[in-house]
Each structure stands twice: as C-alpha cells, then as structure tokens.
Design a protein around this nucleic acid. Structure first.
Lengths: 203, 203
DNA sequence: TTGACAAGGCTAACAGTGTTAGCTACTGTG
DNA sequence: CACAGTAGCTAACACTGTTAGCCTTGTCAA
C-alpha cells in the first residue's frame, strides 16, 4: 500500500493474476495456516501437509516461499482496497475520514497476521502486481485531497492498527477513543483537532 | 515502549541490567552486525565470528538469541527515552509536540534496524526490564496530558517513522511536510489541524 | 602443594528451515 | 503406440538456533 504521487485521474484497479486450482488451494491453505497457527507455522512442510503433498512438490506450482507470500499479500491488498474504496463511496454520519479509518481498522483486524506480513519490512514489495499498492492507498489521497496530509493520515492509521493488533496500548484503554482522537485531528472539515472526545461506543 | 495507564506522578527511569565485559562486547558486536549487515546477518555464528569465538560459547554468557535481542532493545529504549525526555525539557520554537516528534524521528533513524526489531510483532516484550517501556513512552503522555491523545500521537509517530524507514512514501515527497501535517494536527495548542502547511526545510 | 571447582572455550550433533536435483508415474496428444 | 509435459516423490544441501559433553585455565581452600 502506497500513497501515489499526484497524477491524473483515478487509479485503475489492477487485474489479479490467474491461478491454477492447485495454486488457489495452496494460497487458501497458507492463509488458513497463517491466521490460525501464526506466522511461525507457515512453513513449506506444514503447508504441504495441509494440502496432502510433500514440500518440494510445492515448487512445481510456486516459485518459492516469497512468491507464496506475495500471493497472500496481493489478496490482502485487493481486500483492503475494496474496503477503503467502498468506505468512501458510502461514508457514514461521521464523515469520510472516520469512515475510511473504520474500514481500515476493521479490514486489518479481520486478518491480523496477513496485515503484519503485508506491512513487514522484510516483505519484497517490488514483486507485487504493478499499481496495486497505489490503488489500495488511493482513498487516503481522495479523502484528504493533499498527498502529505494523506500520508500523515495513513501513517496514523497504520500505526494505530499495528499497535492495537500487537496489544501495545495500555490495559483498559478504550481504543475507540484513540481512533476518534486521530479522526478528529485529521478530520479537518468535520471537527477541529481540539474537539472534546465524545464518549465512544464499546471497543 | 508504551503509554502507561494514568497513575500517580512521574515514572522512574529503570536501572539498566549489569553486564559482564564479554556480554557488553557481544551486545556491541550484535548492534554493529544488525545495523551494518541487516537483520538477516544477525545469527549466532556470525556474532560469534565477530568476537572471535564459536557460536555455542555465546550460550555461556547469554540465554539465547532472544536474550540478546532483549539486551539490544533495552539499549534502544533507554536511548529513545532519554532523547524524548530531553526533547520535552528543552522544546524548540515549534513547541513541545514538534520537538517530541523530531526527537522520535531522529532517534529511530539513527538505528533503523534496531527500531524495527524493537517494534516487531514477534519480539518478546514481556522479557523487557520492568517499567522500561512505560518510562520511554511517558513523554507522549506528558505532552498531551491525556492518554488517548497520547496514544494517537504515538501511533502517528510510529507509523510515520516505520513507513519512512521502509521507504513506503511516494518518491519525491517531502517527508518534513508529512511530519508537519501530523504535528499540526496533534499540536492542538500551537496550530489548528487545518493550518496551511508551510514550506519545509529539506528532508 | 594439592585438590576442588567454576568459568569459558571447544567439537559434534540434532531438529527445523527453504530449496535443488533427479527419479517416476500418470495423462493427454500426435 | 510413442512421446512429452505435469506433478508427485525421496534424498540431500546449506543454513538456523540450540544442547550435550569434553577440556583447559584460573582461583581459592585445605
């Protein structure tokens, strides 16, 4: 995911890569393994077990583990991109910024380990489908209208999501309030940054 | 690093663990390896090479690789905590929020791989010196006076730092402007969130 | 001086990782 | 029927963190 440099017009949704039935099965099983057993369980041998073959056979279908991870992450980015674009198309009563942030948060929480993989420093982003990251991040630009504010908003969203997923916020803190604090700060048109924090719905 | 639940009075700086000369040498060499060769190069055998012994001998001094990483991260947190507390003690002309963010950014950029390690999901935070993370994060609470805004500000800082370290912002974007957008949004007292972004100094 | 003991090095080895080489069986096409 | 491609397999390699067990060195007490 990226904020694209200001360009001309809307960014097109890339077309997903074709997948054989076997590859689709492998990717599905890998996601399952990743989310249910954790990143440490996503090994070539475990994955092979899950689909009833031996590890070296996976290489008949995929170029290696990082190609598998690229496939996983591309799925995640398509899901995130769709969620974010939808959020802008149908903003709730709290305005487009709050709607965008809510979609980002919810999509990430749905598959936390995939989100961690997607945003990990080691991930080979260069191998991703061209244009996919820019398309996924486009709503941040659309909602702010200015690339630097878009980046700042995205950074807030990513920071808050990853800290929330990793349980880094203090015990008993109402995370909805933290998200509202950010939404209010960046909302601009809907609320000044010094707005009082209204009591949040339950987390 | 953590935002502590609201408590009574200042959080004391923990006292660092004692280290033998050999352990100190190992930690120093590990940091060197980590920053100059990357996370993949920080292996027990490489580290042993760097100090002129064999890998199993490291276990005479350290409980394992994760104990080594804990030592590295504790050093990083002490450094970060000192920088942040200093920043509050001597805020620049742009106010305490901008000063805090600048310190956070500069400290992280100084040892990017250590910052990545510190904030990685897999890191065994529970093994850290008790109270260290709370002390390190305290300035975020001090500067906002409210825990949820503190968390939001910290999330923005972390998000922006990690995305900047990983080169995730679009090419040619002036990151100073992105930081200013955040500082302005969260500054509250010093600038409204809708403030025009002034031309930044070079990145 | 000698004996005991701890500290800190060593080699060999183990289980687990991603990955490659090379073999074999099935399957569809001419 | 013969051939070629697909997709499975085992064995193996280099690498990872880690453990077991041996041996030398230095220290301190009897």
């Amino acid at each position: 995911m990226t904020i694209a440099a200001p360009g001309v017009g809307a960014i097109p949704r890339p077309v997903p890569r074709m997948r054989s039935a076997r590859v689709a099965e492998l990717v599905r099983a890998a996601l399952d393994l990743l989310e249910s057993e954790g990143p440490g369980a996503l090994t070539m041998r475990h994955l092979a077990d899950a689909v009833g073959i031996r590890a070296p056979s996976i290489y008949k279908h995929l170029d290696g583990k990082s190609a598998l991870e690229v496939a996983l992450v591309e799925d995640g980015l398509f899901g995130m991109g769709d969620a974010l674009h939808d959020a802008l198309g149908d903003p709730g009563p709290d305005g487009p910024v709050a709607s965008l942030l809510a979609a980002y948060r919810s999509e990430a929480s749905l598959r936390p380990n995939l989100y961690r993989l997607t945003t990990s420093s080691a991930f080979p982003r260069a191998d991703l489908l061209e244009g996919l990251e820019d398309w996924t991040g486009e709503p941040f630009f659309l909602v702010t209208g200015e690339p630097h504010r878009a980046q700042a908003l995205w950074a807030f969203a990513h920071g808050t999501v990853i800290l929330e997923l990793d349980d880094r916020f203090f015990d008993g803190s109402d995370l909805d309030l933290t998200w509202q604090a950010g939404a209010a700060s960046f909302g601009g048109t809907t609320a000044p940054s010094t707005a009082r924090l209204s009591p949040g719905s339950s987390s």
